[in-house]
Design a protein around this nucleic acid. Structure first.
Lengths: 286, 286
DNA sequence: CGAGAGGTTGAATAAAGTCAACAAACGTGG
DNA sequence: CCACGTTTGTTGACTTTATTCAACCTCTCG
């Protein structure tokens, strides 16, 4: 397994950090430090008038694909904000099985689960090379009392995280496999759009196994569902490349009609040569 | 439905509040109030040296069974701490179906999901008569800057909530129906123990439907699973009265053996008249 | 080029859901 | 206090959904 191979590797604090100008402020080359406003922007938290935040700098750290940011039980002292890259957070159950909790990406905060017990309760692994901003928790709370937008930021981010998890619980508790996969794709598309990438065509950063774990399904079910979506034209799939063809249908999808009906209808639709039939219309007709 | 009938009823500040012997809280203007230390104790947060917190009082409010504490979309301004009673929090999906998110009880905080968007994203309903402590959020953050134990309390509680939800996601994503019901019972037992009640015999405050929604199962599956646990002696069930017989087996249970095997084994075990066989031994033998 | 991880697909199986009938408890008004 | 309708809970028969097991394919990267 990818993560086990690299479990002992510690973050590379790049050579440039040691340069003498550390106390002077941010590095010009390499973007190794961010100020409060940049952090707030990243989190999509409206930063109030930023008073002299140039002394208030937060260090960046790079992680390579497969490296662990933190592990379960490790003493908690810092939060992380994803500046670039893709990760997963996982829980490990009593017999070593991974349960994927989230796929953090740009603008997400990591490590919040460690505040309560002062130990991280989950593990975060880089799915690609990543650039993270370090927020030493003690420093953060101390600063929170001076710069109140920082404090509000913290409450806001933690609350947002909670709402997201609630939505996840709702999804796991109530939706069919197909609806889960559909919504997963839509939410990924939305996040990519938010980050300025295409929401119509993107690459999955995770395996079918990881998606399955995240959605409470097996990898086979995920694979089959993607194939089914592809078959009826909701998406295109080629390995990890996903094209979103009918986002609306994906958003509202509750359950696919049985496949033998589907095949018939599809054939019928095709036989009307030359007529344009959207996947949405097809689904609605069933 | 219970909650719809009472949707418009606002909290009653009851007459009985005047009874002098309430554990937490004092009276002022005919109402119950709690100080910071009492709030921290309730939340199981180590309250640091409490400086003159007698002016720092938080008001209580009573809700009757079926009343709503807050609804989805309602403007957020206050957090609640449960001082006594039982509640549920729910999400309502696009076609009106309830998804139960949690069953808050003594020491739990409500409303945290409202901080981010300034609107509650879930609905809280009293499952019994309840006594809640009001924490006006603005007041709270302002006070947080003076009394830092309060600020730490907030972070701690929100983080704890997050960890709980993560555990829930893990459970919904990975466990069988039987394991979910078993863990649900164990966690209830633990909570009752923590509150000073019996962890061996207690009453469920919620319907099978609500349990099912919480666990991502149907009410029939919940009912059948409880019956099965009863049959093999892990618990006793009589309507909403649950007796925990073998907490250890419940804690570690992953999956029950098929029922025809179970019946045979059970018969075999019984036929050895006079021999004491614990449910745990029975399960282990299968 | 070959090993191994990741992905797809099919057939058989098991788990949980659905539909339905019934029983027990609750609560409300006569 | 009882009768009634309603809500809640149990159980059975059957169906659907997703998992399991297995074979096979196809990229990637030493």
């Amino acid at each position: 397994m990818l993560s086990t191979q690299t479990s002992e590797i510690r973050p590379v604090t790049t050579a440039t950090v040691q340069s003498s100008s550390m106390e002077a402020g941010r590095q010009r080359q390499g973007r190794l430090w961010s100020n409060l406003k940049e952090v707030c922007d990243l989190l999509h938290i409206p930063a109030a008038v930023s008073v002299s935040t140039e002394e208030l700098l937060f260090q960046h750290v790079q992680f390579k694909t497969g490296q662990r940011i933190h592990t379960i039980g490790q003493p908690f002292d810092t939060l992380y904000i994803v500046n670039s890259g893709f990760l997963k957070t996982v829980l490990i159950d009593e017999f070593g099985n991974e349960q994927v909790l989230s796929f953090p990406m740009k603008g997400d905060m990591l490590g919040v689960d460690g505040i309560h017990t002062r130990h991280y309760s989950s593990e975060a692994v880089a799915l690609s090379d990543c650039d993270l901003i370090l927020l030493p928790f003690k420093k953060l709370t101390a600063l929170g009392r001076v710069h109140l937008e920082l404090e509000n930021m913290m409450y806001g981010v933690m609350s947002r995280e909670l709402v997201r998890e609630q939505a996840m619980i709702g999804m796991l508790g109530a939706l069919s496999a197909e609806a889960r996969v559909a919504r997963f794709l839509v939410s990924l598309a939305d996040r990519f759009a938010q980050m300025g990438y295409s929401s119509k065509l993107f690459n999955l950063r995770m395996t079918r196994h990881e998606i399955g774990s995240y959605l409470g399904l097996t990898l086979e079910t995920v694979s089959r569902t993607l194939s089914a979506f592809n078959e009826i034209g909701l998406i295109s799939v080629d390995q990890r490349t996903i094209g979103i063809k009918d986002p609306e249908a994906l958003k509202t999808l509750r359950r696919l009609p049985p496949s033998r009906t589907r095949a018939k209808q599809l054939a019928a639709a095709k036989s009307k040569a030359g007529e344009a039939v959207t996947p949405g219309q097809l689904l609605a007709a069933l």
